[in-house]
Design a protein around this nucleic acid. Structure first.
Lengths: 238, 238
DNA sequence: TCATTCAGTGCACAACTGTTCACAGACTAC
DNA sequence: GTAGTCTGTGAACAGTTGTGCACTGAATGA
């Protein structure tokens, strides 16, 4: 007599469609077949993402996802070969937003102080805007599923390389070797990652606690940048 | 017809006994009942630890553990109430070795350079000596099991506080507020954690790659310390 | 208009899970 | 020596899992 859960397919923000539609807000009254397929695909991804806030990917079952998405288990295979494939899509999605974030942060590369303040702000707001994505990444970075771990690691490395390139545009860093730049970028990425994790692990909606996390992040970054002018090859002898 | 796997109870290094025995190498020919209980308890913990190298705790089943330990599933309850309880014991064990590590590292607090070199070396060797413990911690720090996450977080916080106290003994840092010391300690712990994770995620037994990780760690720490003399309250305005 | 495509259904199966219970038998305490 | 304690056993349970298969019926393209 088990009641099917019809919540998902209709509910949730189903604005995941990639196709260009006229600036007409309403979704088409009679969606095409492909559109409806994309819709349930999104429903699956969103359902997984929501479930992943409370458990890790390794313990997430195909049936849980389909149940939450409002379809029958076997229909899953119309969209993904595997749970693993779904996981990889989530990794990809998550880093897409991350890249959007850093792109936003590097628009104004004036002084350190500006960049720090700006970057931390952008980071915090983006973490909130994509909480489930960030939580997913944080959780699976060292999680039990090797494929996801590897995918995430390469993405983070790419991210750090991007940052290193951006850093090279600062006058103080112009003369640095790319190796040293990577080092610095790695340090900054570490700080940012742990900041994101602190936000996610902190109290849910506590602006004060959050501002303190942000302040700590700013000060950490500042402390790092204070060492920069003193560097000039001194570290290479370490 | 399923063949029971008798490997575990006898095999593995079963030197987990806490009782004082005479410097007689041989284990007693007829171990007492409590001793044998401790032995299978260790077998359970070790089996779990070994399985956790390839999967996360959330996906680790009671039956897997008992199978690997060579006992029947129901016997598990003679030792632990729960899988969760076993997990908490593992957290405790892991941080016991971590604390031993920092204690070893702080024996020689002379100059930065010495301490950095020394600490990194100690870190690397300890990570290797207790690979499975470290991997377990890294994996579950943001894993799917809330209780473990919380336990690990408090332990790390304790660890950072310990470090902050140690740092206070350096002349350059004598005048720092405890808040600033915590900040610095947090930064260092971050670097060390990510170093440990890099070692665990790197190629298994590649001394060259590992020395490079260690070198990066040293340089990261060095860069951080370079900022320290410049600090003097400058960061508080951030 | 009609044949085809295909997202979603429903049933089935074997495998695995956590936990219960009564029981065996070796160690322990008296 | 004997009664009791307690670790490990084995069968059984209800529940969940991934996946194969034949199916339905609506959107699709000719």
């Amino acid at each position: 007599m088990r009641t099917p859960e019809p919540e998902a397919l209709a509910g949730r923000d189903a604005r995941g469609a990639h196709h260009r539609d006229p600036p007409n807000a309403q979704p088409p009254s009679t969606p095409t077949r492909q559109e409806r397929k994309q819709l349930t695909r999104r429903a699956l991804l969103d359902a997984a993402l929501e479930l992943l806030e409370q458990q890790s990917f390794a313990s997430l079952s195909l049936r849980q996802v389909t149940r939450a998405a409002g379809i029958v288990p076997t229909a899953f295979y119309r969209h993904f070969e595997d749970m693993q494939e779904l996981g990889l899509v989530l990794v990809d999605e998550s880093f897409r937003t991350l890249r959007a974030m850093i792109r936003a942060a590097r628009t104004d590369p004036r002084t350190y102080e500006h960049v720090i303040r700006n970057s931390v702000e952008v980071l915090v707001s983006h973490v909130h805007a994509h909480e489930s994505h960030f939580r997913f990444i944080a959780r699976e970075r060292f999680g039990g599923v090797a494929v996801l771990r590897q995918a995430i690691r390469t993405e983070i490395r790419l991210f750090a390389s991007d940052l290193a390139m951006d850093l090279a545009r600062f006058p103080v860093l112009a003369s640095w070797s790319s190796e040293d730049l990577q080092l610095l970028a790695g340090l900054i990425v570490n700080a940012m990652v742990s900041t994101a994790e602190a936000i996610l692990d902190g109290p849910p909606r506590d602006p004060a606690a959050e501002e303190e996390i942000a302040a700590t992040a700013r000060r950490q970054l500042r402390l790092i940048t204070l060492g920069v002018p003193q560097w000039q090859g001194a570290g290479r002898t370490a």
